[in-house]
Write a protein that binds this DNA or RNA. Structure first.
Lengths: 138, 138
DNA sequence: AAATAGTTTATAATGATTCTAAAGTAATAG
DNA sequence: CTATTACTTTAGAATCATTATAAACTATTT
């Protein structure tokens, strides 16, 4: 199956209509080997580079990120920044976060062991375990 | 030494002038047993309750949080929320973060063991290790 | 081919935070 | 002490990220 069909399939099986805009964004985000970290504004800039024939509105960028997140194709990352970062790697893993440059870098799940997890508060369940190693220039 | 003097001392030893506003906020934040989590807007509401005689401007609330953070008296917490959370517990520790209500709860440092930390990227050093357990209604 | 349900868009609105520059206050120098 | 300086507070404007609105558009279903 070719890339275009794969993307269309991925969207349809998540109950997302395969519109031109979603296909373009999905192709950009999910057709890659390495994990990709971004904010909405960054994705907007990249997708709407001046040369790109048809622009996608910023609202659609936000809507699409949200739809992909709800569908489980993107994961939101915890930072102390006042904008949201997303990760194309939706499996459990960890991050370095440079507090000076706001840059993120993945850490393989198995490179850190988290032992002895406490119970979640009553009536709640643990959804995810994330380790963030904040780093700065040494 | 009484509370007022302690607070004044704490400010002065951090090279922060002990102004009326900073003393009031410091007294509220640091004179407590249990850790306290808050956002700038929340702190503003509490400090400027209608009955409080002298109001402190929102800009000063922001400035003061920032000054306290830089002085190491407050720690910024990692969440996926678009507002900043601060913690009066500046020692290394972990959190439950309820992604539905945005509520934070401390986890004692020793209740979780993080083993086998990877090296920081070249030229960088690890500043902090934070584990966030995202939780939701079960 | 028409009806409908979902999507995109430009723009307005909101919410959190930072900026500005004038007035005020603490620290320091004379 | 008083004057000077440096830092701080303030109200309000400005900015930045994000969400809401509602009209035009398009994929899907009938």
């Amino acid at each position: 199956m070719n890339l275009k069909n794969k993307i269309t399939n991925k969207l349809q099986s998540s109950k997302l209509r395969p519109t031109k805009q979603r296909k373009k964004i999905a192709e950009f985000l999910f057709n890659r080997e390495k994990t990709f970290h971004f904010t909405a504004e960054e994705l907007n800039k990249i997708i709407n580079k001046k040369d790109s024939s048809e622009k996608i509105s910023l609202a659609t960028i936000y809507n699409t990120i949200d739809a992909f997140k709800k569908a489980g194709h993107l994961k939101e990352i915890l930072t102390n920044n006042n904008k949201s970062f997303y990760d194309t790697n939706v499996s459990s893993h960890h991050h370095f976060f440079d507090i000076e440059t706001n840059e993120l870098e993945d850490i393989n799940y198995n490179d850190i062991k988290v032992v002895n997890l406490p119970h979640a508060p009553k009536g709640k369940k643990i959804q995810d375990v994330e380790v963030t190693l904040t780093v700065k220039k040494s």
